[in-house]
Design a protein around this nucleic acid. Structure first.
Length: 843
RNA sequence: GCCGGUGUGGCGGAAUGGCAGACGCGGAGCACUCAAAAUGCUUUGUUCGAAAGGACGUGUGGGUUCGACUCCCACCACCGGCACCA
């Protein structure tokens, strides 16, 4: 039988989530309960969800993130805070451009159509965003300020051009920042294998900030996930050591190398330079033809190899001798110089001193090419099962010794331990002007140029003499030209270069012909400061209002996925420090606290079309309702854990919502009734709930909050059905607490309950009721009676029972008497009123 | 290899050093129903026992403590980051 032929009750006794959504969405549209006036006198909270990229409609991942962020935003409103909870779109970027190319459309259309679709879905999803502060990074009114940011950084020397080996995505036909290349050498965007190209590009000088980006992580250690902190530390990759300068025979300047093991300097037996470094070229410049040919052939081979091949760790060492010699500054020894690709041109100085005895890479190389190995650290040998020392000679074992030991074969530092030896060598080098203590970073400067259309034009004009001329501030924005007549097809250079009318300009200095920079900025520039734009989204005189930034920024709580652990979060931290240094903001970190939500999985796997396990959000919403889906996201577990949709029950959530809703329906007492006359047992449950939930929300234990809501609903149901009944004021008090608490998770249901309880919308604006301390005092507690730490009895006692009285009660327990039989007491612990523990031993 | 995190019922998960398994899913039974759906009630860690009542139990092995899921040490497994970075 089809359900539609049923005689369904049409009255209000039936919970109908779809009807609630239809009923309340228009009321909220009218009421605008989440529009924020930044000037009222309540305390501030800035709650920010990472803004989405408009790729199609919202999916389950968005649903989780926005459900969790909304719990926090709604919570602080209930606590009486003035909450700023804005939303916008990160709407520049490659997917729009690629989709446009595929369909022959303008990327604008694809982008803004998707934004509209997502906007409609978000409103249905009832995320409590302030819809009057929406920003799109692809609006000229927004990206104008990207250009402003670029220009102030250029003036400060923090934006610069250099010719360097860069990561090139052969599919998207653009360069990428280091952060956008995965460890396996593939592009974060297209998945293509990234190749190296030598190009002149724009960079932001993030390396100048490496130390501060690292040090300030300490301040975030308690409010950011440990995982993100650790990933950023790894990425910055600080390494302390020393620069050592080597004289090269026949060269008029010394060559520095970086080492973390200055103590092993006496063990250096050769030097290696990166084949693609300028130094290598210089060293072979006037080499004999045979050396030169070998080197050129090697360099060509290295440049053809992919990042993956180069990084294979068990790869055979390769290299060529350059026929040149370096002089060891501490003992004057001549060290042959080789070129080998295990040395990287863009780390340290692109050259190393090789100490094969104590560095595995150098040892592998030395053994391959039969170079000398000299032990300078006497590392005590480990003992085998019979107590005999195990041979640890690097040449015989092929294993470099890296442990602690005493220096040998090292002249004046013989006998010293590592730390002392390093200090001694560095001090000597400094005294001789041949070296110094220094620090290196894995972090590289941020490459921001992109050879694509759909991004912020770089506001620079190239004079025909090669001069770089910043576009004057009053001529911003440099707007993107229309796509008509432009071929957006990726071809290795920016499509903007072909927009003749746009790219050809006059040199502001003398009126001669000049060209605009044809590249656009990495879209991570857009998102590195957007949190400031929300404070004054329509300001056309400045990027953001510095006064509002003082009171509202940094963001109190940022919510988003761990995918941006390095990329976006590192860039935003960097740009914030730049804005601080340039006097635009008075803080140095953009996000005071960070919550990473987990992923939504299906059957143990990330959802993907190829796996065929995609759960459609729209279908879930239609089947279970917005409120049930949001509640399910929060109840599934700790927010930072992944949610497997196969393991959770939106139907169960809907069932609970119906139960909660019926409780409010059943209430018969009038609004404003004196709760004091209500059933004390239920009131105690309610006030424990009111007291406990704030701490739970503030420590992100949303799943426990939902459990507490369920307990409160169950207790209320029980009071209605088999206790003092629906007219008890305590039932109303409990139902009101449920409505306010439930608003954080399931606002439609909560709003309807609130109305049934005789209140005006919106429940979202209702203040959290204060817990009455008098009701939190227990009149009777359960004391645990243990023998040898095992529970033997439970006694209901007064909370202020005296210790000796409790002990006496415990000893009177049958269970205790029985257990003590045949044992001798050795100790008694009494912690009244909670516990008595009698420790015994056998007689 | 280095760094970080996590290990609790059939499942998702609770638990300021003090009742392990809250809350829910799933299962079983019952009520309502001609029947079903919906709803409600009971029950549900393993194991011995007819029951009363025991024993065991939070990855493994130690330790601290009257008392350890919780603190310390060592190890194992899984997840994540970095890795030819000198």
């Amino acid at each position: 039988m089809s359900p539609s032929t049923h005689d369904e009750p049409t009255d209000t006794e039936r919970y109908d989530f779809a009807a609630l959504e239809r009923k309340w969405a228009p009321v909220w549209d009218e009421l605008k309960p989440f529009s924020s006036d930044l000037d009222d006198d309540r305390p501030n909270k800035y709650i920010l969800d990472m803004f989405p990229y408009p790729s199609g409609d919202l999916h389950m991942g968005h649903a989780e993130a926005y459900a969790l962020g909304d719990v926090i935003a709604r919570y602080w409103r209930h606590r009486g805070y003035n909450v700023l909870h804005p939303i916008g779109w990160d709407s520049f970027g490659l997917p729009a451009e690629n989709a446009a190319i595929k369909r022959g459309l303008d990327p604008r259309k694809w982008t803004y159509d998707n934004i509209e679709q997502q906007r409609v879905s978000m409103r249905r999803y009832a995320a409590s965003f302030d819809w009057e502060r929406v920003i799109h990074t692809s609006d000229p009114e927004y990206y104008k300020w990207n250009q402003w940011l670029f220009l102030i950084m250029y003036e400060a020397g923090l934006a610069y051009r250099k010719d360097s080996w860069v990561n090139w995505d052969p599919v998207d036909q653009t360069v990428l920042a280091n952060e956008q290349v995965f460890a396996d050498g593939t592009s974060e965007r297209s998945g293509a294998l990234v190749v190296k190209k030598k190009l002149t590009q724009w960079y932001f000088k993030i390396t100048d900030y490496a130390d501060r980006l690292l040090a300030d992580l300490d301040d975030l250690a308690h409010t950011w996930p440990a995982k993100v902190i650790s990933m950023q530390r790894n990425w910055i990759g600080r390494s302390t050591g020393a620069d050592v300068e080597f004289q090269i025979e026949g060269l008029d300047h010394r060559v520095p190398v970086f080492t973390t093991r200055a103590d092993t300097l006496y063990g250096a037996t050769f030097m290696v330079v990166a084949p693609d470094s300028d130094l290598a070229g210089e060293l072979v410049a006037d080499a004999p033809a045979d050396v030169r040919e070998r080197f050129d052939a090697y360099l060509a081979k290295v440049q053809k190899s992919t990042e993956i091949e180069r990084q294979a760790t068990d790869r055979e060492k390769t290299g060529v001798p350059l026929g040149r010699y370096a002089i060891n500054p501490v003992n004057g020894e001549r060290l042959p110089i080789w070129a080998a690709d295990y040395v990287l041109s863009d780390y340290g100085h692109g050259a190393i001193m090789a100490v094969p005895a104590h560095d595995q890479r150098d040892l592998d190389f030395a053994l391959t090419f039969d170079l000398p190995v000299r032990v300078v650290v006497d590392v005590p040998a480990e003992l085998d099962a019979d107590g005999a020392p195990i041979d640890n000679d690097p040449v015989r074992t092929g294993i470099a010794t890296t442990g602690e030991g005493r220096m040998v074969n090292s002249g004046p530092i013989d006998g010293m331990a590592k730390t002392e030896a390093i200090a001694h060598v560095v001090a000597q080098l400094e005294a001789d002007g041949l070296g110094r203590a220094t620090t290196n970073y894995r972090l590289r400067d941020w490459l921001i140029s992109r050879q694509r259309y759909w991004g912020t034009p770089i506001p620079i004009i190239h004079g025909d003499d090669g001069a770089l001329i910043p576009v004057p501030f009053d001529q911003l924005p440099v707007e993107l030209p229309p796509t008509e007549g432009l071929d957006l097809q990726p071809k290795g250079s920016s499509p903007l270069g072909a927009a003749t009318d746009w790219v050809n300009v006059v040199d502001p200095r003398d009126g001669s012909p000049a060209r605009r920079d044809p590249d656009t900025m990495d879209t991570f520039v857009d998102s590195s400061w957007y949190f400031l734009r929300f404070l004054s989204p329509n300001d056309d005189t400045q990027a953001f209002d510095p006064e509002l930034a003082k009171t509202w920024a940094p963001v109190d709580q940022y919510v988003g996925g761990v995918t941006h652990a390095i990329l976006h979060l590192l860039y935003a931290r960097f740009i914030t420090k730049v804005l601080y240094d340039l006097g635009h903001v008075n803080f140095t970190e953009p996000f005071s606290a960070l919550l990473n939500q987990g992923m939504v999985l299906m059957d143990g796997h990330a959802m993907s079309k190829s796996k065929g396990n995609v759960v459609a959000l729209a279908e879930q919403l239609d089947e279970h309702g917005v409120d049930a889906v949001r509640l399910t996201m929060a109840f599934a577990g700790p927010p930072e854990d992944d949610v497997d949709w196969a393991d959770v029950s939106p139907a169960g959530s809907a069932k609970f919502l119906a139960r909660a809703w019926r409780v409010a329906n059943d209430v018969t007492s009038e609004p404003g009734v004196d709760f004091g006359a209500g059933d004390p047992a239920l009131r105690t449950v309610t006030h424990h709930f009111l007291a406990e939930v704030p701490g739970l929300v503030e420590s992100f234990k949303f799943n426990v909050v939902v459990a507490r809501l369920m307990e409160l609903v169950n207790a209320t149901r029980k009071t209605i059905d088999s206790g003092s009944g629906a007219g008890d004021p305590a039932v109303r008090e409990a139902a009101e607490a449920v409505a306010i608490g439930l608003d954080m998770f399931s606002p439609y249901t909560a709003e309807d309950m609130w109305e049934h309880l005789g209140h005006e919308p919106s429940v979202a604006l209702a203040l959290w009721p204060e817990a009455d301390p008098a009701l939190l005092v227990e009149t009777s507690v359960t004391a645990i009676i243990q023998v040898d730490g095992k529970v033997r009895d439970r006694l209901q006692v007064s909370p202020d029972i005296a210790a000796d009285e409790l002990e006496a009660l415990a000893r009177a327990s049958d269970h205790v008497i029985r257990t003590l039989k045949g044992r001798t007491e050795v100790n008694v612990i009494v912690r009244a009123p909670k516990i008595v523990n009698i420790a015994t031993k056998p007689e």
